[in-house]
Structures are given as structure tokens and as C-alpha cells.
């Protein structure tokens, strides 16, 4: 399906790199490396140079921690979105927030996508997406409260739950007036899931693709990779890329990543193996 993300459209079958840009002092991977606004802006410049089509700007780390008020979250992201918008008119700007109030403010500042990593915790977020004609990422969290860790969560079938919840969310967004081609579903690896759940979601991601809604996967350096390989943050790239290749073969469209270059290579390679993308330049044996 053609994707329309705010001001930008992408052809059917195009894959997109969504680079993570944290305006946080405490996110798990970069540990505040881009907390300063200029550092975050430099990160945007780097990932644009690396070919990312989307930046996903977040003002609150996913894990539990100091409560961040809506006012503080806005202070972290709104002006920054405006600055990125002005500097990079062709870039898709996504903002990682579950709050409608923050969503409206960043849309005013030029955001194209609201990435609701917490699965519709604020029911009004879809109305904001509709009124600003921006994209929305509908994630599955198993109904957990934002910024809580999964604890003894049980599913009869985690994939069925992820499909049921994300498709329901997508239909709710559609009913609220969000354009069909602006709605994306995301199983949200590790959100409301233990490692076994995230592995099963990865193994069966094709079932989500089969719903017809474009699928985003957020795998980058997550704990399910770390626990599977018994590796700390900082040593999970290869495991991340292995999971990425499985999702790419199944047809996931958007990849939320820390490492743009490596992920782009993996996705292009797998997309070509799947027969969805020609080689960049093949002449061997064909002269």
C-alpha cells in the first residue's frame, strides 16, 4: 500500500528507515548522548546523510523513571521539531508520544507522524492525527500503562493479541478520520512482552503483514535480542540485524533503528532476495 506520512508519500513496496533521535537524558541505548538540543540536531544531520527517510523524535524514555509532565515533554520536543522541519523539508518527522496534547503541539510545529508507542493510552491521539492529517503508528502493548515494564504478562496467543489490538486501533484511527494510507501498525517488540513473546512476534510477523496494514518494526538493540544472545546494550547490532532480516523477508515496511546504514543494507538485500527490489547494479554474467 502507498504510504502517506504527513507531507510525504512513498510508493507501494518502498521500505523506510526511521532513525531514533532521543531528546532524553536517560534512554537505554544512547544514555543521553543527544540530550542537548545541538547534539540531537547533529544526530538528525547524521541520519539524514545516512539515508534515513524518517526521524522519530522522543522526549521521554520508554522505561520507568522520573515522571515527565506534558509541559516538560513539549519543552523537549516542540521547538526541536520546528527546527528540524525548517532545516529538512523533505524529511518525515515522527514524534514518539502517547499524549494528544503533545501530539497537537508537535503537529503545529511540523510533525508528519505520531508514533504512539503505548498503544492508544490516550484515546484522543487519533483525533489529533486526523485533524492534522498526519500518520499514526498503532502499537500493541497488551494494555499496559505507559512506561511500565512487562511483568508476568500472559497471552493465549501473543500474535493474535498483537494483530487484534493493532488492527482495532487502526480501525479506530480510520473511523476518527485518519487517512487509510497514513495508518501503520507495530507489534511493539518488548512492550508488554517477554523475550519469548518478542521472538514469536518476529517469527510470525508475516501474519501482521497479511492484515494489509503497513507494518513497522522496532527491534533495535532491544532486550529480547540481548537476552537471546546474552549480550549487553552496545553488542546487539548483529542480533538486531538478524531479526530485521526475518521481518524484511515477511514484508515489514518501516524499521525504527539506531543504526541506519547497517539496517538499510540488510533490508535492501532481503527485499531483493524476496524479489521485491532489483539489484542496484548487476552485470556479472549478463555482459
Amino acid at each position: 500500500m502507498t504510504l502517506k506520512l504527513g507531507r510525504h508519500t512513498f510508493a507501494d513496496g518502498a521500505t523506510l528507515m526511521m532513525a531514533i533521535v532521543n531528546r532524553t537524558p536517560d534512554s537505554f541505548y544512547d544514555k543521553g548522548a543527544t540530550w542537548a538540543e545541538d547534539a540531537a540536531f547533529a544526530r538528525v544531520a547524521t541520519v539524514v546523510e545516512q539515508g534515513a527517510e524518517i526521524v522519530d523524535i522522543g522526549g521521554i524514555k520508554a522505561a520507568p523513571g522520573v515522571e515527565i509532565s506534558p509541559a516538560e515533554e513539549k519543552a523537549r520536543v516542540v521547538d526541536f521539531v520546528a527546527r528540524v522541519r525548517e532545516a529538512y523539508p523533505a524529511l518525515v518527522i515522527s514524534v514518539d508520544t502517547w499524549r494528544a496534547e503533545v501530539g497537537a503541539a508537535v503537529c503545529e510545529a511540523g510533525a508528519d507522524v505520531l508514533n504512539d508507542a503505548w498503544g492508544g493510552a490516550d484515546p484522543e491521539l487519533v483525533d489529533v492525527a486526523a485533524s492534522y492529517d498526519v500518520g499514526i503508528i498503532c502499537t500493541h502493548t497488551g494494555g499496559v500503562t505507559p512506561r511500565t515494564r512487562p511483568y508476568r504478562i500472559d497471552y493465549d496467543d501473543v500474535v493474535a493479541a498483537a494483530i487484534g489490538d493493532t488492527v482495532h486501533y487502526a480501525e479506530r484511527a480510520l473511523a476518527a478520520g485518519v487517512a487509510r494510507e497514513s495508518i501503520v501498525i507495530d507489534p511493539a517488540h518488548d512492550f508488554g512482552k517477554n523475550t519469548f513473546h518478542s521472538l514469536e512476534i518476529t517469527r510470525r510477523i508475516g501474519e501482521m503483514v497479511d492484515t494489509g496494514w503497513p507494518v513497522l518494526v522496532s527491534l533495535s538493540n532491544k532486550d529480547f535480542v540481548g537476552e537471546t544472545l546474552d549480550l549487553p546494550v552496545g553488542e546487539r547490532l548483529i542480533g538486531t540485524l538478524a531479526a530485521t532480516s526475518v521481518c524484511a523477508l515477511a514484508g515489514a515496511r518501516i524499521y525504527r533503528v539506531h543504526e541506519v546504514v547497517e539496517t538499510r543494507q540488510v533490508v535492501d538485500m532481503v527485499w531483493s532476495i524476496a524479489g521485491r527490489r532489483p539489484p542496484q547494479r548487476a552485470i556479472r554474467g549478463l555482459q
Binding site: 527490489r277 532489483p278 539489484p279 542496484q280 547494479r281 548487476a282 554474467g285 549478463l286 555482459q287
Partner: peptide
């Protein structure tokens, strides 16, 4: 008779443009 001219062997960047 260059096979790279065939659509089944098309690349993103045409090596025989």
C-alpha cells in the same frame, strides 16, 4: 545479445544505459 538489456535482469542503476 546482451542479457542485461532484458527486463528480467533490470537493475536499479542501468549498467548498459
Amino acid at each position: 545479445g546482451v542479457p542485461a538489456l532484458l527486463p528480467s535482469y533490470a537493475s536499479l542503476d542501468d549498467p548498459v544505459a
